[in-house]
Design a protein around this nucleic acid. Structure first.
Length: 111
DNA sequence: TGAGTGACTGTAA
DNA sequence: CTTACAGCCACTC
């Protein structure tokens, strides 16, 4: 029995893991989905401690900026991963972010 | 124990 | 359009 969703921390990882290929989401979207819209920072903190099975590169800030790229080894790895999925990235920022945006509250609906 | 920091967001000017 | 400020919670020193 997966009681991993008993914690906000684990739930963030679970939602991030459900992000489909070629899609991205924001910290606020995840935070709001978990009922902690005012704790977007906690989502980022959770990402900092996320396991390797969590595609953290698909999680960016509300403007589609790769704010966490610095945590991907200090290289353009995060941008490369997104471009590899067909997402257009320019200067650490996702172009047409709204087009690639994936809202867990809408797509996932229930967890 | 208190102050500083951070992978953020929203509103105001 | 950009810039600035405040709120938020957990962690570190």
């Amino acid at each position: 029995m997966p009681e991993d969703n008993s914690n906000f921390f684990e739930k963030v990882h679970e939602v991030a893991r459900q992000i489909p290929y070629g899609r991205v989401t924001s910290y606020g979207a995840i935070a709001k989905f978990l009922g902690a819209a005012r704790s977007a920072r906690m989502v980022g903190w959770a990402m900092n401690n996320c396991p390797d099975d969590v595609p953290a590169h698909r999680v960016v800030n509300r403007v589609g900026l790769l704010s966490g790229k610095h945590h991907f080894g200090g290289t353009n790895l995060m941008q490369q991963l997104l471009e590899n999925e067909g997402i257009e990235v320019e200067d650490n920022q996702i172009t047409d972010f709204e087009k690639h945006f994936w809202d867990p509250a809408k797509e996932l609906d229930v967890l």
